[in-house]
Computed example of a mutant assay.
Amino acid sequence: MSRLPNTTVLGYPRARLLRILLGFPALGLALGFALPPLARWLDGASMLPLRDVLAFVGDMESAWQTVAFALAATLIGLLAAFVAVADSVKVTLTEDTLNVEFGDRQKPLSLRRERVAAVFVEGKDLVVLDSAGRPLALAPHRASRTALARAFRAHGYPWHDSRAESGGFDTAGTPLATSAMASATSPLASSSSAALPLKTAVSA
């Protein structure tokens, strides 16, 4: 999470971002040095697939070939890290606007503060609802739940810890109280299912 004057940008936590940007290239470097001797060791196994690939990698016996292969694997790891970060969802908050950038070619989403009636996390998704319970945004989040809650509350958005606290809308946009009452009064509902209508609606 980064802060500008009256602006908060939410994405990967710093520690996780560093693990991605440093870990992927480091893994590529390690594989680059480890694969040639491993390929030579496995080359005699007749049951393994991709024997031609193993033979090609195993033929890299000189020092400069091994170093070149390791550098190429490091660059591939670095590229994979940048792609992973670039394709992640970024949320930008101000007191007036909520912007969601999806990282791919999908058009960014911009919502005025007055349209937002509830914000919460459900599973791996950040959910934004309007006053009628209709979803305005549904996007996988990268920031931690704690960072999201702190940022949205700091900018005056109606953050809720769960869907049940968000004003009571289920996945169909129906108030949970209404859904619970319908379940309780349904002639087809059994006594056991009518005893827990709210729990059923929340988990929907």
Results as ranks from 00 to 15, higher is better:
S2T: 11
R3M: 10
R3T: 11
L4P: 02
L4N: 11
P5I: 08
N6P: 03
T7C: 12
T8N: 05
V9M: 12
L10K: 01
P13S: 10
R14W: 13
A15S: 13
L18W: 13
L22Y: 09
G23L: 10
F24D: 01
F24S: 05
P25Q: 08
P25M: 01
A26D: 08
L27A: 12
G28L: 04
L31V: 06
L31A: 11
F33W: 14
F33D: 00
P36V: 00
P36N: 03
P36Q: 01
P37G: 06
P37C: 01
A39R: 01
W41P: 00
L42W: 09
L42K: 04
G44T: 06
G44K: 10
A45T: 04
A45P: 01
S46W: 08
M47K: 08
M47P: 04
M47Q: 12
L48E: 09
R51D: 06
L54V: 07
F56M: 12
F56Q: 12
G58H: 00
G58Q: 01
D59M: 07
E61M: 08
E61G: 03
E61K: 15
E61R: 15
S62A: 13
A63S: 12
A63E: 11
W64E: 13
V67I: 14
F69D: 06
F69N: 01
A73G: 05
A73Y: 01
T74S: 13
T74H: 02
I76T: 07
I76K: 00
I76G: 03
V83T: 11
V85P: 04
A86T: 10
D87P: 03
D87Q: 14
V89N: 02
T92A: 09
T94C: 09
E95R: 15
E95Q: 11
T97L: 09
T97E: 14
T97G: 02
E101M: 07
F102P: 02
F102A: 06
F102M: 10
F102Y: 15
D104A: 10
K107L: 08
R112V: 10
V116L: 04
V119D: 03
E122T: 05
E122N: 13
G123Y: 03
K124V: 12
V127K: 01
L129I: 09
D130E: 14
D130P: 08
A132P: 05
A132K: 15
R134G: 13
P135G: 08
P135Y: 10
L136K: 03
L138Y: 10
R142E: 02
S144D: 07
S144Q: 00
S144M: 03
R145Q: 09
R145G: 07
A147K: 12
L148F: 04
F152V: 03
R153M: 08
A154H: 14
H155E: 05
G156K: 00
P158W: 06
H160S: 14
D161Y: 08
S162G: 07
S162E: 04
S162R: 12
A164E: 08
E165D: 14
G168W: 04
A172T: 13
A172S: 14
G173H: 14
T174M: 11
P175H: 05
L176M: 13
L176P: 00
A177G: 14
A177M: 09
T178Q: 13
S179R: 10
S179G: 15
A180F: 02
M181D: 06
S183W: 12
S186C: 00
S186N: 15
L188S: 09
A189Y: 01
S192P: 04
A195K: 07
L196P: 04
L198T: 13
V202Y: 03
S203H: 13
A204E: 11
